[in-house]
Design a protein around this nucleic acid. Sequence first.
DNA 1: AAATCAAC
DNA 2: GTTGATTTG
Length: 326
Amino acid sequence: MGNADLRSLAALSEISFEELSGSVVAVDAHNWLYRYLTTTVKFTREEAYTTDSGEEVANLIGLVQGLPKFFEHDLVPVFVFDGGVTDLKDDEVAERRAAREKAEELKADAEERGDAVAAARLEARTQRLTDVIHETTRDLLELLDVPVVEAPAEGEAQASHMALRGDVDYVGSEDYDTLLFGAPYTLRQLTSKGNPELMDLEATLAEHDITREQLVDVAILCGTDFNEGLSGVGPKTALSAVREHGDLWAVLDAREAYIENADRVRELFLDPPVTDDYEFDTDISPDVDAARAYVVDDWGVAADEVDRGFERIESSLVQTGLDEWT
DNA sequence: AAATCAAC
DNA sequence: GTTGATTTG
């Protein structure tokens, strides 16, 4: 199962923050938080991200540490929140729940053995995005005046739709799904060190001389979040098969194979539930003091975890303010 | 989570 | 080329 490994097919290139200055980037909130919670935050210093009262605040710290990158480079993030779960994804959700429960069991075992390292690793797997995390994330974004859009379903699909309509310049994501959802340009590694990476849909299609429909077919053949791919079929095999036979159905026919829900998965990528009913203002003026008070006073985050982040946000605001006068 | 490596 | 395990960040 699992995700299509489209990396080897994607047209990627480096891009500098200078070139991106002034752009608006739609970020899938779920993905952004999930990645942040499971990688940067959880591994080493788990204690720091849980308050004395036992509240999970890693998301708040993650935002305060991650957002300055946007502000400092004059990039405006628009956070897109997931709507209801697609029914197709029920399987996936159930699977994740099972995986989580399993991980929780293993973690309990590890703790019993006194194996702290193993327990910490497993903790990452038990991680989930709770309602509290979603709500506090929204609250903090609001205080920082960061635009938020509600997706009817998949955040990635909505973000891609907004990019297709030209309402944002880029989608910010680490996933390759945005290619399938039709996002013209996706930015990767926006919060890591070094330059971001630009993923170009048109260049990807041109490079392999295929259409977006065919790219979706390739992905379905290798497996996506929504369907099991054919075993033994990876990106290379899928690509040449689609190029040879034309589309998914012809490939399945030729290989006498069957993929559950293939038609619906295809539809989901090519014509996902999205909305034009959104509105946001990219001229943002964060209330840094209120944000700091919210994080430190209301939620009990240690001040030294967020001081630097808030300082960076503050000084980036001064900077852009000056730019307007020069 | 990405890169590398071994096995099929 | 694909997959699974492994390591490192």
